[in-house]
Write a protein that binds this DNA or RNA. Structure first.
Length: 677
RNA sequence: UGCGGGGUGGAGCAGUGGUAGCUCGUUGGGCUCAUAACCCAAAGGUCGGGGGUUCGAAUCCUCCCUCCGCUACCA
């Protein structure tokens, strides 16, 4: 591995429209904190930057909804999250924010430099505009009827009912989700970063020069590059963000994904006048810690920006984690399905390390993992308390009992003693190489193995028996146990900083450096240690049950919200109604459309003729069960090709609250083609 | 739909061609310094499913099933 002079660590900027939860922590902030602490202990020159990402449409919408300004929204979450990180021991060198003046300056300059170099394409396009809200609408904020399946609640980028991806112009009867009004098309000018231009360079830089990146990261990059990169717009029509700093760009701001990663640079500038050393010197090793949803921005788009700008270094590695689930369900801010950091800190005071431990031990490094409160409890009670806390406690209690807290000298050692002493050094090496490779889970396990080693050593040597017969040997045993304890304060420090600080106080030592780990003479004979307290306490069932109960309440609240009947639609005239040609019909044939999950091809007799209708109901009905069934259809819907099959009309179904479909049929038998009115 | 990453004993995870491993849990035993903590041992897996390559496959190829991401909020 190349030896670097200094390190620049960045962690994904959390979006400032909600609080921090355990998913953020396990994916990004706990691993990066461990890594930063580890490097600092090694005496490396390292800075670690982060901050709130405060721009983008969702924040403006949240502000609108609550009747406050976007700035008030971001102020609220910036302060909340900054404090929560601090209290949790996340040791950023700076936690900045993208609404800072220095960020506006940095992002503007960055854009201008690319602009002046002629790196951007300028293009006009037609986009939907909400005249009432006076804003252009991002794809996701336009809803309308899906041209494929008739779902009236399809989004501008995708219909969730039939799964087809759409563009806003495909939607029938588009409406703005901001105001509910019909948006109009308006011409607008934007700047595009021509990613296709950087494709050959990216190909070499990632696919050849960074084969060591994690499989999930490398795989996703390869897939993007292989598919061919497209120019991406870097600006948006919005009044919240960094204004595009060129003439004629009124009402336009930099798109969040363009401005957010520049936030790493702004934060560094804010932190130190020496910032250029960290961003421009190839002797600096830059590492981006992110979650898997951010891979393409950090591995493709941001590097392309940096490369186009020309004066900055590129990331050496981007260790992205997968996602953490909570009690078998996706973590979701909007559904309140999360363990919020600020709440945890209040409800489990002084237990930062327990959560740090549980999240690191179960970090989603190679695949999505699940956090459960029972697992959290078990990790605390069976590992932190039983293995680490217990070893420390028995060592310190025995030392106090036998020697009134005075560290005994190490007398003669046997082969087993030497083996144990040697194992300490090996475990240190192992923790170190795992941390170097971003394998935090394995590193933590090895660190805990040091405590396991200690427990086994005590059990094998049984000083409580020997103390009556062979006090000299007991001195050696206790000396070695104390050296292991001192080593724990180093090796566990990156993972459990709060507890190791306590432990150092109890054994009355200062902070060691990482290089001291493996040294088995950290505590000289005669050194006086203090009285121990409990390093970790058992967590009883009641505390866990309260948390589980809290989640169940959130789930119930969600179900209650989902159970609300969808809002009624606008009044229509009788004329509008009578334009619909709804008829009874009978299904003659039914078969699945190959290579689809939801589509059935139906041949039906509707009285007028025998026709084919393709319908997205395959998940709810077996084709053979449908044959012979009488149903209701809209017969005069304009025909449309779906999967190459012409579909003439639409099957009427009632959709239940949970999305289940039920056929709408005449209650008694009628002849096919009977009109329904 | 496509692409990427997953699917391994009760739970959580390692393991990319050569006798299936770790942590926790379970069962039995030992110990009693220690927060009923610690130590030892055992039970428990046809490695998502089918087909193929190979002397040999969890590992390579192929088809399929399934979860997650790319795709609002969001790590």
């Amino acid at each position: 591995m190349k030896k670097f002079k200094r390190h620049l660590i960045t962690s994904a900027l959390p979006y400032a429209n909600g609080p921090i939860h355990i998913g953020h922590l396990a994916g990004v902030y706990v691993p990066s904190d461990i890594y930063a602490r580890f490097l600092r202990m090694k005496g490396e020159d390292v800075i670690w930057v982060c901050g709130s990402d405060e721009h983008g449409v969702p924040i403006t919408l949240k502000a609108r909804k609550e009747g406050i300004t976007p700035q008030q929204v971001v102020d609220r979450y910036h302060e909340l999250n900054k404090k929560a990180f601090e209290d949790f021991g996340i040791s950023f060198d700076i936690y900045s924010r993208t609404s800072n003046k220095i960020h506006y300056q940095t992002a503007s300059d960055f854009f201008l430099k690319l602009y002046n170099k002629g790196e951007f394409l300028e293009k006009t396009s037609n986009q939907y505009y909400d005249e009432e809200a006076k804003c252009f609408l991002a794809d996701r904020y336009i809803m309308g009827t899906c041209p494929h399946c008739g779902n009236e609640n399809a989004y501008g980028d995708q219909c969730e009912k039939c799964g087809t991806s759409l563009s806003p112009n495909d939607l029938i009867n588009p409406r703005s989700t901001v105001s509910g009004n019909k948006p109009v098309l308006r011409e607008t000018l934007h700047w595009y970063l021509p990613l296709d231009k950087y494709e050959p360079w990216l190909k070499k830089w990632i696919l050849e020069d960074h084969r060591e990146w994690k499989a999930n990261v490398y795989g996703q990059c390869k897939s993007w590059i292989d598919q061919g990169l497209q120019p991406r717009a870097v600006s948006r029509d919005l009044d919240w963000g960094v204004p595009v700093p060129v003439k004629g760009a009124d009402g336009k701001v930099l798109y969040v994904w363009f401005d957010a990663p520049i936030g790493y640079i702004s934060a560094t500038r804010e932190l130190t006048p020496d910032w250029e050393k960290y961003w421009r010197d190839p002797e600096t090793r830059m590492i981006h810690f992110i979650g898997k949803d951010n891979i393409v921005f950090h591995c493709i788009i941001f590097p392309a920006m940096l490369n186009a700008e020309g004066s900055f270094i590129l990331p050496d590695n981007v260790p992205a984690n997968e996602f953490l689930n909570l009690e078998n369900d996706k973590i979701s801010t909007s559904r309140n399905w999360a363990v919020w950091l600020h709440e945890y800190l209040e409800e489990f005071p002084g237990k930062q390390d327990v959560l740090r431990y549980a999240l690191c031990a179960n970090a989603p490094e190679t695949k999505d993992n699940d956090f459960t409160w029972k697992d959290f409890q078990a990790r605390n009670n069976n590992e932190l308390v039983a293995i680490l806390g217990n070893f420390v406690n028995r060592t310190l209690v025995l030392t106090n009992n036998y020697y009134s807290g005075k560290v005994p000298g190490r007398g003669p050692t046997n082969a087993y003693d030497l083996e144990v002493l040697e194992a300490v050094g090996k475990l240190k090496e192992s923790v170190e190489s795992n941390l170097d490779a971003f394998r935090f889970r394995e590193a933590l396990k090895e660190a805990m193995n040091l405590a396991r080693l200690g427990n086994k050593y005590l059990a094998d040597r049984e000083p409580w028996k020997l103390v009556k017969t062979d006090p000299a040997t007991v001195e050696t045993i206790m000396n070695i146990s104390l050296q292991i304890t001192a080593n724990l304060t180093i090796i566990c420090e990156p993972f459990l900083p709060f507890s190791m600080k306590k432990l150092r106080e109890w054994i009355r030592v200062g902070e060691f450096g990482w290089k001291d780990a493996g040294n088995t003479d950290l505590l000289p004979g005669g050194h006086l240690i203090g009285k121990p307290e409990l390093l970790f306490e058992k967590i009883e069932d009641e505390k866990i049950d309260i948390q589980i109960e809290k989640l169940m309440l959130a789930k119930k609240a969600n179900e209650a919200a989902a159970a609300c009947v969808v809002p009624g639609k606008d009044t229509i005239t009788f004329d509008d109604f009578s334009r619909l040609d709804i008829r009874s019909a009978t299904i003659l044939e039914a078969e699945k459309v190959p290579k689809t999950t939801k589509l059935l091809k139906l041949k039906i007799d509707c009285g007028l003729d025998t026709r084919t209708i393709v319908s997205g109901i395959a998940e709810f009905f077996e084709p053979r069960d449908l044959i012979g069934k009488q149903i209701s259809i809209v017969a005069n819907l304009e025909p449309r090709k779906i999967k190459g099959i012409e579909s003439k009309g639409m099957i009427l179904c009632a959709e239940d609250r949970d999305g289940k479909l039920v056929l709408v049929a005449p209650a008694g038998n009628v002849s096919n083609g009977s009109t329904i009115k």
